[in-house]
Amino acid sequence: MPAHTCTQVEDQVVATRIELRCGPARISAATGVPARTVSRILTRRDMPRLAECDPLTGQRIRATRPPVT
């Protein structure tokens, strides 16, 4: 693909996400990669949304009980 982001840039975006635990706008400012591209990279790398992560550890929160229906 001619417009595909190189692996080194994708690795930098993921590392910045893990380090800063922030959204695409702030990652974009830190790396120089457009925010929309950051969103696509995070989705492609199966990174959880910030709402799904523990604020202190950055790990995905897993429900201990099934949802009530």
Rank of each mutant, 00 (worst) to 15 (best):
T5W: 13
D46F: 05
P24T: 03
A15Y: 09
E10S: 13
S39E: 09
I61F: 06
T43W: 05
T64W: 06
L56C: 09
L42F: 06
A3R: 15
A15P: 08
S28T: 01
A15W: 10
D46N: 10
L20M: 12
V9G: 04
Q8M: 08
R62P: 00
P48W: 04
L20P: 08
H4N: 15
G23Q: 03
T16F: 01
A30E: 04
P24C: 04
P24I: 00
T37C: 04
I27P: 01
T64I: 07
G32R: 03
R40Q: 08
T43L: 03
Q59D: 10
H4L: 15
P34W: 04
R26F: 01
D11H: 07
H4S: 15
T7N: 14
I61Q: 10
S28V: 01
C22G: 04
D46Y: 06
A29K: 02
H4Y: 15
Q8R: 12
D54Q: 08
R26H: 01
E19L: 06
A29V: 02
D11C: 07
A15D: 10
S39G: 04
T37E: 05
I18H: 08
Q59R: 12
V13G: 02
T16A: 04
G58E: 07
I61W: 08
E52M: 10
H4C: 15
G58H: 09
A29G: 01
V38D: 00
I18A: 09
L50D: 05
R65W: 12
L56K: 13
R36N: 05
T37M: 03
A15R: 13
A25K: 13
V38Y: 01
G23I: 05
R60S: 07
E52K: 12
Q8L: 10
M1S: 14
G23S: 02
D54H: 12
D54V: 05
E52V: 09
A15H: 09
T69Y: 07
R49Y: 13
A51M: 08
A51P: 06
H4Q: 15
P2H: 14
E19Q: 10
G32E: 00
H4A: 15
P66W: 04
P2Y: 14
R21F: 05
T5Y: 14
A63V: 02
T37Y: 04
C22Y: 07
T16R: 06
Q59T: 12
V68G: 06
Q8S: 11
T57Y: 11
S28Q: 05
R62E: 06
T16N: 06
L42Q: 02
P48F: 02
M1L: 14
Q59C: 11
R21I: 03
M1F: 14
V68F: 13
G58L: 09
T43K: 07
T64H: 08
T69P: 06
V33S: 00
A25N: 10
A15C: 12
T37N: 06
I41D: 01
V33P: 02
R44S: 09
A29F: 01
T31K: 01
H4I: 15
Q8W: 11
E52N: 12
T16I: 07
M47T: 03
P67K: 09
R65A: 09
R26A: 00
H4K: 15
R45C: 05
G32I: 01
R26D: 02
T64C: 02
R45M: 06
P66I: 08
I27N: 00
P48K: 01
